[in-house]
């Protein structure tokens, strides 16, 4: 046994036989053309590029975008009573509610308490919609707006006034069956 005998540890690598000229040429062009077939077939369908931000993708009605807080239509009072249940449900811990008491002269919401501070840190929000589910008064819902990027993180903390304001609907809704 030679001192260099590697013994049974040798792993033999098996290679495919090197292709000949014809096969090589086919591999270079034929396969490429086969792929391009799909591309050319789609050309006739016209362009599908969306010219964002000039154009926007319509979203589904259930799409969970930026939150909205609501008021009662008849009285104008806020629906939110500052119960903090949404904050309890939020897995990202990004809602902060500080409640206060309504007085007859200073009535904000329908119940005894209202949210004096209501903030959502949208840079943390994962848009799971749990807050909407937790709310006993349908005071908070997920809107359709997904355009929230900003230059500073602190601008992503949305206050109660911002959430209550009628949002500029910037995102088209997908129609039924679309």
């Amino acid at each position: 046994m030679s001192p260099y005998d590697p013994g049974e540890d040798v792993i033999a690598v098996q290679r495919a036989p090197t292709s000949g000229a014809v096969r090589g040429t086919y591999r270079a062009f034929g396969e490429t053309l086969r792929g391009l077939k799909t591309t050319f077939a789609r050309i006739v369908e016209g362009t599908t590029t969306i010219q964002y931000p000039e154009e926007k993708t319509p979203v589904y009605p259930r799409f969970r975008g930026r939150h909205k807080l609501h008021r009662f239509e008849d009285t104008g009072l806020e629906k939110c009573v500052g119960c903090s249940l949404c904050a309890a449900a939020c897995p990202a811990d990004c809602i902060r509610v500080v409640a206060a008491e309504n007085t007859p002269e200073h009535r904000i919401s329908a119940g005894e308490r209202y949210a004096a501070v209501y903030e959502i840190n949208l840079s943390r929000c994962i848009f799971c919609g749990y807050c909407e589910v937790a709310c006993p008064f349908d005071a908070i819902t997920m809107g359709h707006d997904y355009e929230m990027s900003d230059y500073s993180r602190s601008d992503l903390i949305f206050t109660k006034e911002m959430l209550l304001a009628e949002p500029i609907e910037r995102t088209p809704l997908r129609n039924e069956g679309e």
Binding site: G82, S84, A87, A88, V98, A99, A100, E101, E112, R113
Partner: peptide, 9 residues
């Protein structure tokens, strides 16, 4: 303490 906080806060 009225309405100052919830137990999870």
């Amino acid at each position: 303490y009225r309405f100052r906080a919830r137990p999870w806060e």
